[in-house]
Amino acid sequence: MKFKEFLEYLENNLDGYGTFLRKARQFQAGQNAKRKKPWSDYETEKAAYKMWAAAAESLYNNLRSVVKSDYPSAWVSYIKNNDVLESVNESICELDFFDEVA
């Protein structure tokens, strides 16, 4: 499965997708309030989606090392058999973006 297919699969099947975007938008709005020249709504929305895409890419890379197949059916089977969506949904519920630098 290619990343673009994986991203589309998540967006269509992951209950927490909307929650992730809501939290990312809230984070970006907070960041925007601190900027000398605030971004437009389009720019903040784009930044929130980039956060989603980066998180999905990380998950994709982790799964790719386990699934080891290009066939979407193999990916979907692995995701379902290992409750990946449920695990990701739980993680999203616990997710809290903050801007503290370590």
Rank of each mutant, 00 (worst) to 15 (best):
L59N: 01
R64A: 15
Q31V: 14
K4T: 02
N12M: 09
E45I: 01
A55L: 01
L7C: 05
E11T: 06
D15S: 06
Y78M: 08
T19N: 05
K34L: 15
N61R: 14
V76L: 08
V84T: 09
P72D: 13
K23M: 00
E100Q: 13
E43P: 01
A74P: 00
Y9S: 08
M1K: 03
A54C: 02
E90C: 13
Y60I: 04
S58F: 03
T19A: 06
G16P: 00
L59S: 06
F97W: 05
S58M: 01
F20I: 01
A56T: 02
S73P: 00
V88E: 11
E100I: 11
G18D: 11
K34Q: 15
K2A: 04
Q31D: 13
E100S: 12
K4L: 00
S40C: 04
Y17L: 05
V101R: 11
D70L: 03
S65F: 12
S91Q: 08
F97N: 06
N32V: 12
G18P: 02
R25Y: 05
M1Y: 04
N81L: 11
Y42A: 11
R64C: 10
Y71L: 14
L85W: 01
L59G: 00
N13W: 02
M1V: 07
D83T: 07
E5R: 10
K68N: 15
K36L: 15
Y49M: 12
E90M: 14
P38R: 10
I79A: 09
A53I: 08
Y9E: 00
N12T: 05
N82H: 15
D70H: 10
A55H: 01
L95S: 04
N13K: 01
L63I: 01
V101G: 08
F27I: 08
V101S: 09
P38Y: 09
L10E: 04
S69L: 05
D15W: 03
K46I: 03
A54S: 09
E45Q: 06
A102Q: 10
Q28D: 01
S87H: 12
W39D: 08
T19Q: 10
K23T: 00
S91T: 00
V67C: 02
K4Y: 04
K2Y: 08
